[in-house]
């Protein structure tokens, strides 16, 4: 998901979340735990355990990075959108992603880390972003599929975070979720046009895009519950509300019917309705691929990061000039 941070931290040597406390700290810790248990929100200036702060900073900043890097695969298609209407929609969607990144960076900054430090962590490879954005957008159908499946999966994951115990994150997520539904619907709508009114070649293009995005989308929800060592602590803290496997199942169940209406198949021979479970069964996910992509070796990891770094460096003179201008103006006013 955009929030894979907690799932990947164990493997990235971020360490265990629990540690031993002194007596004074224990009082604060007990008070904090009681507030979490009561369903209270924690605000930025309230006392919080170091690891709660660290885990949130990690998750929110990587969520923000995902929104920003997520603009790149779609940005590739702005100049090639098939109609003016689709171009305007795509521009609006990508602008939203930029906005979502900003809401989230602002929420993360309240935890005491500067925007520049977070950006530096992304650019140096220390901070990650969602694995999904390391896959290429090869055709126009990929853009519709990203809206339908990637944003669909994101919504599934993000709605529970609106109840996150850390209030600035929860507030940002509420704002984001309100805007996200348009992203999914426009994607589905664009695929529907191709499936219903398109040529055979266009229909085949949609099917091909779905085939390529389906498995990476299921991976977005993160490793299976029995391989997510930090999930329990995340749940305890009210940062994670629903488990990876539960969300993944919910996504599969919702998507199967949508695929039917669209007229595409999902690339999984093991996909079938389980009457007993009242859920769709699905095939095994290739977790080796997931860890390879998270580890930096996906199809587009290098390209994405290089684009971000270039944009940041090319824009440096603008940021500096704006600041110099502002300083000069305020000096003039003071004189």
């Amino acid at each position: 998901m955009y929030t894979q941070a907690m799932d990947t931290m164990a493997r990235e040597g971020a360490g265990k979340l629990e540690r031993v406390l002194g007596a004074d700290e224990q009082v604060l810790q007990d008070r904090f735990d009681a507030r979490i248990d009561a369903g209270d929100f924690i605000e930025a200036k309230d006392w919080m355990p170091d690891n709660y702060r660290k885990t949130l900073l990690r998750q929110i900043s990587q969520h923000a990075h995902s929104e920003i890097v997520g603009m790149l695969p779609e940005g590739n298609w702005i100049s090639r959108a098939p109609t003016l209407k689709r171009k305007a929609i795509l521009l609006a969607k990508i602008q939203d992603e930029g906005g979502h990144g900003l809401y989230l960076y602002a929420a993360a900054e309240t935890l005491g880390t500067s925007r520049d430090q977070m950006i530096e962590a992304l650019h140096s490879g220390k901070a990650k972003y969602s694995s999904i954005f390391n896959y290429p957008t090869l055709t126009w159908a990929d853009i519709g599929t990203i809206g339908w499946l990637v944003d669909g999966a994101a919504i599934m994951n993000q709605v529970p975070i609106c109840r996150c115990s850390f209030a600035p994150y929860a507030r940002a997520m509420i704002r984001i979720c309100r805007e996200e539904s348009f992203h999914q619907r426009q994607g589905y709508d664009s695929l529907l046009v191709m499936m219903r009114d398109g040529t055979d070649a266009q229909r085949a293009m949609v099917q091909d895009a779905v085939n390529r995005w389906w498995w990476p989308c299921l991976m977005m929800f993160g490793p299976p519950d029995d391989q997510s060592p930090n999930s329990a602590q995340g749940m305890r803290w009210g940062i994670k509300r629903v488990s990876n496997d539960t969300l993944r199942q919910k996504f599969v169940d919702a998507t199967v019917q949508q695929a039917g209406v669209l007229g595409v198949s999902l690339p999984d021979p093991d996909l079938k309705w389980n009457e007993e479970r009242q859920h769709w069964d699905f095939g095994a996910i290739d977790w080796a691929e997931f860890w390879r992509v998270v580890g930096g070796d996906g199809p587009c990891n290098r390209e994405r990061l290089a684009m971000r770094v270039k944009a940041w460096e090319d824009g440096a003179w603008v940021r500096e000039a704006a600041l110099a201008h502002a300083r000069k103006q305020s000096m003039k006013e003071a004189a």
Partner: peptide, 24 residues
């Protein structure tokens, strides 16, 4: 109050607030 943002000066802050927080 609806959030925060970085901007070099007041005019830019207003413009960016418009873009970031009032797109709809």
């Amino acid at each position: 109050h609806c959030g925060s943002l970085h901007a070099a000066d007041p005019k830019m802050a207003l413009q960016m607030a418009r873009d970031v927080y009032t797109r709809r």
